[in-house]
Amino acid sequence: MNNDHLIELRHLQKSFGPQKVLRDVVLEIRKGETMVIIGTSGGGKSVILKHCIGLLQPDDGEVVVDGKVISSKNKIDVKTIRKRMGMLFQGAALFDSMNVGENIKFAVREHEKQHSEADLDRIVAETLHMINLNPDFRFKMPSELSGGMKKRLGLARAIALKPEILLYDEPTTGLDPITSDVINDLIIDMQVKLGATNIVVTHDMVSAYKIADRIAMLLDGRIIFVGTPEETRATSNPYVQQFINGQRKLLAEAD
């Protein structure tokens, strides 16, 4: 193993019924980088994230963090996963029955029993500050928030436990370009302020080019390309070109 690699996906395979979603996913993610995984809708990008965080177990292959197998066909090391990772869900997945402050406090209160209520309020304020929001937001209910605001608060909840690995499932999907850019800046901020390793799943190329240190493309259940944003733009791989240029047909077919 390369010591530089924090996370390794080794030959991941996953099927749902007769449908083989991941055929042989091999990918290494370096410590502190932002890896963006692109690919068509329904291609299995979110499935990769769910394997990384232990929500799904592979049919074959392994997820390795710091040289330790955390998920394979036979086991899931839930403890390590939960301690080191946080996730922003596609729809933010805020707990609807709680206000924003409670959403952020809930996990901290349960896992870090040493905190008093005053400490928890301070953590909420700090977390909201980190995502550039006023502490007064803690009293709002999720139903009162816009889509972009929900994503920001979903991120706040994910970082409240200070994870070193952050997973983002389609963070800019359904948002206007300006709000998307706010989210992009926050993802970059997390890398800088928390030193987090980010794995982002998206099909938004504007976002991918802005936040990625490297981009990986998933096609037919395999990673077919990995490169920096510049390498991605310049690649001659017809499938990558088709995707980043948003063409219905491959260039070769179009000719």
Partner: peptide, 16 residues
């Protein structure tokens, strides 16, 4: 509804 909105997954991820 919690399942549909991924709230159950979010709880699992937060070790709740």
């Amino acid at each position: 509804t919690m399942k549909e909105k991924e709230e159950l997954d979010a709880m699992t991820v937060l070790d709740l």
